[in-house]
Each structure stands twice: as structure tokens, then as C-alpha cells.
């Protein structure tokens, strides 16, 4: 699982530019599957199980990651940009980003020595930031970056004990789980969807859920974990090393209580660590899927992830394995009618 995640996190794919991630997924799952790419770029993989499913189950994860998009090149050759997906200003300032053609740029900062008083801790708005690719002037910059080009954080995969640090764990973790399930085979016929454009309004999943028309959906995600220094327990949302995470409610979905309870029952039966997401925060593709067509019974399972939407998100390899195990068992329960 860890190697799969490493391979997938290394690929750059901001929302709307997921082609390389999709190609990587396709090469990882190999030939012999019923594969379809929809008009929004989402990849739909129908996998034959040992048995037909009583209920149609869709597992999904999103391929896109947060990034930035070039909007304008200044006369001095600096690149104005806006964010693709939600990124806090402090996560951008002083960081490096990589464009699709490999050009690296840095988000510039006014030197702190030249700031007085409160300005020393003041964060500029994104509209006042710029990316510096080392260009001499506008013409020089335009040889390498044009408005509309996108970039993502640079980041080197780092292992810290059981923990993993990388960009894009949200949601290559979900992609890695699905790739592993496809490779190892499934008990019941199952549809896997690798969605596009989650970070910009749950768009890929809206289209693909219509196309797949499932009865049950399991959304696999990376969700924010705030188990960090200085945060009271009640505000931590979930914690690394305590297993997969299941949502009862977030800002996109009020989840089906039967499915929520079933997740804990299945986790218990199989000795899989599972924790509730203890704050109503964030949202994910479940928001568009559960109201698709006439409605889809939907659940979200996550790997807890610190510093989400930054160059250095951190998750725990054991939680990733728990997510993998629970996704399989829960999919089987739904497909077999045991839910």
C-alpha cells in the first residue's frame, strides 16, 4: 500500500489536470478490466467479482489535488495566480510549486527585515502574491508559463516512523486503496471510480455518479486530523494511528445512520480500527453522490491526515491499511445485501 501511495503522490494533477494521475492509475491496475473515461476525465473501472452483486456498489476516490493556476504575467515576468481548491495563505507563502511542464517557481515574500511592527506577522492575500520562476521579464516568462497553466506543491516523500509525509495524500490515499483492491480482485462485481475536480466543487463525481447509477457508494478520502500540539481533544476531528475514520455529518452530507452503524459493526467483526469524525467540518464527493438521480446510499471512509492541502500532509501507514481492509469488507456487506 505504501509503495502505491508513494507512486501516486509523486504524480502532479491539480483539479482539471488529472490526466497523468489517470494514466498512472491505468498502468498500475494493468490490462483486462472494463475501463471507461467519461467526458470530465473521471475513470470508471468495472471489476468482475467471484459473484454477481445483489446491490450495485460504487467505490470512489478523487484523483485531483489542490494547486494554483496562473492568471497573468507581470511586466517584470512574475506570475499572478489564484488557488485551485482551498489553500491557506500561510501554506503558500515561501513555498515552491511545479508547473505541468516541469518549470519550478517560488511564491515570493517581502523580506521580514523590511516589515515593521504588525507587518512582520501579516499574511498577504493570494491576490497580492506572485510566483517567481526566475524570468528576466514578461517575454522571458511567457516562454515557459502562460495564463491557464497550473502548478502544484513540490514535496519529497518522507517516512517518519510509521508516518508518511507528502503532498496530495488527499486523495491519492483513496486512489491507492482502490488500485490495490482492483489488483487483488473482489468478491462481488464492483465499480471503482477515480474522479476529477473534487477540490473545486465535487464536479467529477456529480457526472460519474449519474453514469454509474449505483445503489451504494463508498467514498474514500483523506480527511483533516487536528491531533497536533495545542489543540484541545474536542477539536481534533480524528487522530493518526487510531484507524480509519467514518463521517456521520460534514458540510456536504448528512449520512445514512444505518450505513454509519454498519461501518462500526463490520470494523468490530473484522478487528479493524475505526474512529468517528468528531467534528462537522469539510466536505467531499459524497455531497454530490448521495443526491445523484433518485438518491444513493452513501458513506465516507477516510485516512486521517494532518496539514491537509499543504506541501507536507502527514498520514499513518497503519490507518491506510485499516481503510483498505474496511473498504473491502464494507463493500462486500453492501453488495451481498447484508446492510
Amino acid at each position: 500500500m505504501k509503495e502505491l501511495l508513494k507512486t501516486l503522490c509523486a504524480v502532479d494533477g491539480a483539479s482539471g489536470r488529472e490526466t497523468r494521475v489517470r494514466e498512472t492509475v491505468l498502468s498500475l491496475i494493468g490490462d483486462g478490466h472494463d475501463v471507461k473515461v467519461d467526458p470530465l476525465g473521471s475513470l470508471i473501472v468495472s471489476v468482475k467479482g467471484k459473484k454477481p452483486a445483489k446491490h450495485k456498489v460504487m467505490l470512489c476516490a478523487h484523483m485531483d489535488e489542490v494547486g494554483v493556476i496562473a492568471t497573468f504575467i507581470t511586466g517584470a515576468g512574475l506570475i499572478k495566480f489564484t488557488t485551485v481548491g482551498g489553500i491557506q495563505p500561510a501554506a503558500l507563502l515561501g513555498k515552491t510549486v511545479r508547473f505541468e511542464n516541469g518549470v519550478v517557481g517560488a511564491v515570493g515574500v517581502k523580506p521580514v527585515h523590511l516589515c515593521a511592527g504588525d507587518e512582520r506577522l501579516a499574511l498577504p492575500e493570494v491576490k497580492d502574491m506572485y510566483i517567481d520562476i526566475g524570468a528576466e521579464d514578461k517575454a522571458d516568462a511567457e516562454k515557459r508559463v502562460r495564463p491557464g497553466d497550473v502548478a502544484v506543491f513540490t514535496s519529497d516523500w518522507t517516512e517518519m516512523g510509521d508516518k508518511i509525509l507528502s503532498k496530495a495524500i488527499d486523495d491519492r490515499a483513496g486512489c491507492a486503496v482502490m488500485v490495490d483492491m482492483i489488483r487483488k480482485g473482489v468478491e462481488y462485481d464492483t465499480t471503482f471510480v477515480f474522479n476529477t475536480m473534487e477540490e473545486v466543487g465535487l464536479r467529477g463525481s456529480k457526472a460519474s455518479a449519474f453514469t454509474v447509477d449505483p445503489e451504494y457508494a463508498i467514498v474514500l478520502e483523506g480527511t483533516t486530523a487536528a491531533d497536533v500540539i495545542g489543540v484541545p481533544e474536542a477539536e481534533r476531528v480524528c487522530a493518526l494511528g487510531k484507524g480509519a475514520v467514518v463521517n456521520f455529518m460534514d458540510r456536504s452530507t448528512l449520512y445514512d445512520k444505518t450505513l454509519y452503524d454498519k461501518a462500526f459493526a463490520v470494523a468490530n467483526e473484522n478487528g479493524i480500527a475505526l474512529q468517528p469524525k468528531t467534528m462537522v467540518a469539510g466536505g467531499n464527493d459524497a455531497g454530490s453522490i448521495h443526491v445523484s438521480r433518485g438518491g444513493v446510499k452513501t458513506i465516507t471512509l477516510n485516512v486521517p491526515t494532518r496539514y491537509i492541502h499543504s506541501p507536507s500532509s502527514v498520514c499513518d501507514g497503519n490507518d491506510l491499511n485499516a481503510l483498505r481492509a474496511l473498504a473491502e469488507k464494507l463493500a462486500e456487506a453492501f453488495a451481498s445485501g447484508d446492510a
Partner: peptide, 14 residues
């Protein structure tokens, strides 16, 4: 030598 990361405040607590 240990790798590490300086924390960033989670969005929901910001």
C-alpha cells in the same frame, strides 16, 4: 537526524 514538519493550523480551527 529526524525529518519533521512545522505544523500548520487545520482550516476548521483557523
Amino acid at each position: 537526524t529526524l525529518p519533521g514538519v512545522i505544523i500548520s493550523t487545520p482550516p476548521h480551527l483557523a
